[in-house]
Amino acid sequence: MTRNKYFIKQLSIFSENKSGRLAAVAKVFEESKVNIHAFSIAEANSFGVVRAIVDKPELAFDAFSKQNYALQYTDVLGIKMNDVPGGLYHVANLLGSIGINIEYAYAFRTGTFGTLIVKVSSPEDAVEKILAAGLELVPATDYNF
C-alpha cells in the first residue's frame, strides 16, 4: 500500500485580491467542465491563493495554464470527521497529541461525514502517524478522478 494514495491534489492558484477575480477563476473551472468539491481563499492584503479540490485537477491545471495563471499542485490530506458536535475537536486533539503541525486547513461535508483538508509539511510521515492514531483518511480517488 502506498501512502500517497491519500495525497489529494489541491490546486493552488495565485490571484489578486480585487473585484471580479473570483468570478474569473470560477469561469475557468466552468469552461473546462471541472467540478469543484472544496474551495477556499487565503489572502494577504493585495493578493491571495485560491485553493480548490476538484474532480479533474490535470484538466483544470491545463486550462488555467493556458490562460497564463500562476498555479501549482499541492498535496493535501483529507481526514474524515464525524458530522456531530465535537467531531473537529476529536480530530484536532489527536493531531496535536501525535505532533502533526498543520500549515492550513479547511473543511467540508460530503454525504454523512465531514472532511478536514489539511496541509502538512511532510505528508508521508503524517499519513503514517494519522492512520496509526486510528483516524481515517479519504483516498485521493474519492475526489480526483
Binding site: 495565485f14 494577504a44 493578493f47 491571495g48 491563493v49 495563471y69 500562476a70 498555479l71 501549482q72 500549515e103
Partner: peptide, 18 residues
C-alpha cells in the same frame, strides 16, 4: 508580476517574496 514557473502554491512564500 510573479514568475508563474516559480510559484510554489504557498501564500507564505508570496509574503516572503513581497
Amino acid at each position: 508580476e510573479i514568475n508563474k514557473h516559480l510559484f510554489s502554491g504557498e501564500l507564505s512564500d508570496l509574503a516572503r517574496l513581497q
